[in-house]
Design a protein around this nucleic acid. Structure first.
Lengths: 149, 149
DNA sequence: TTAGTATATGCAATTGTTCGCAACAGAATA
DNA sequence: TATTCTGTTGCGAACAATTGCATATACTAA
């Protein structure tokens, strides 16, 4: 799975160097129990490694995303990331009203993706897929005071 | 539908003012036959209205998106927009490899959205929904020279 | 252990997007 | 038509994210 050791091996096998910065960032994501913002990761990293630059955090997170070690989650406006757990994969439904995120079992999108592939031979990447919308609570609120703007 | 006159009426009814800048931007989108980037819209607008600011373009496009007059399309990294045609609505499949965009009939996502709503009482906003992935051509290319990075 | 090399980093500069604010200008009213 | 009210604009500054470049460092092979 994506425990420390396995990830390190994955990186080595791909010729990606194991720098202290990268190890630190991965450890921070592992300890953070949910998706984290870039600034959040950077702040935590600085407490142990004061000279780490935000650019390094961005570069590392994007690299890890490319090799599927972390997953990008579209929460709010800014980028958020979390470690990819193959055994508890899930997608997200984010309420654009209150910002809360709900997990979604992977089958929903997988079935959907397979259908797209069958019909168009387009291979959708459902890994980083976030559904935006309104949660039931906010939908209720809206019905009463429904200002569109 | 979304012809000039109807849009103007929609804006008035919502208390949104009809400024020359907004009219210009809408006309540019109408003439542009597909989705356009923000900078592209700004450049075109300047030829007729040299002092228009890029911030106004951004604000106008976001406003029009909120009232469903334009649709945001996630092509590449930057924001793209197109006029919403209720009679020829579609979603997009964008190839992350070659950047090409393919249209997708609306039923696919509508059925999917309805299911989500039934199962979780979460109301997904499928209006601005872009599916990223790999088109069949790029998938073929990739099989031969599959470098992951 | 050391030397050599390609990759990764920190820093500064850049790009794309948004925001705050004073001045301006639609639209409703008289 | 003149007046008033409020939404909108342009400008400059702020912010988030990315990039170029010179230096530093992880890894490989000897």
């Amino acid at each position: 799975m994506n425990d420390r050791r396995t990830v390190f091996k994955t990186l080595r096998d791909l010729g990606i160097r194991l720098t202290p910065q990268r190890i630190l960032i991965l450890d921070i994501l592992r300890k953070g129990n949910a998706h984290m913002g870039v600034e959040e990761v950077h702040a935590k990293a600085r407490t142990r490694f004061p000279y780490i630059d935000i650019a390094t955090v961005y570069r590392t997170l994007h690299l890890m995303k490319k090799i599927d070690v972390v997953t990008e989650v579209a929460i709010g406006e800014r980028l958020h990331f979390e470690l990819t757990h193959p055994d508890r994969k899930h997608h997200h439904m984010v309420c654009t009203c209150c910002g809360k995120a709900f997990n979604l079992a992977p089958e929903y999108l997988e079935r959907f993706g397979e259908q797209i592939h069958r019909d168009f031979s387009f291979e959708p990447d459902v890994r980083n897929f976030t559904i935006k919308g309104k949660c039931s609570l906010c939908a209720d609120k809206f019905e009463k005071s429904d200002s569109i703007l």
